[in-house]
């Protein structure tokens, strides 16, 4: 299992994610995102565009490392990893 952690900004749209630790079975980040969509329908289109690319101002980390494959999220996951889904410090 891997643990997913979120920027609290996402809780405004998906409040039930704030209720407890979110853990999914996944060996890549793409699988983790697919599993997340099953838990929070609609969230995938917040994080990725319709071609499956991570949105420009969304950042995903595995532990302290930013993922490399923003196009396909093939970055591998190990059991016990924590995936951080954050927003870039951009905006106005």
């Amino acid at each position: 299992m891997v643990t997913l952690q979120f920027t609290r900004h996402l809780f405004a749209f998906f409040p039930h994610l704030a209720e407890g630790q979110v853990q999914v079975q996944a060996t890549t980040v793409a699988q983790a995102l697919a599993a997340l969509e099953a838990l929070a329908p609609g969230i995938d289109f917040y994080l990725r565009d319709e071609r499956g690319r991570v949105r420009h101002h969304v950042q995903i980390f595995i532990g302290n490392e930013r993922i490399r494959d923003r196009r396909g999220q093939t970055d591998p996951l190990q059991p016990g990893d924590t995936v951080w889904i954050l927003q870039a410090l951009s905006g106005g």
Partner: peptide, 8 residues
């Protein structure tokens, strides 16, 4: 137009 999360 969410700045970070796309158009909805």
């Amino acid at each position: 137009g969410h700045g970070h999360w796309g158009a909805k």
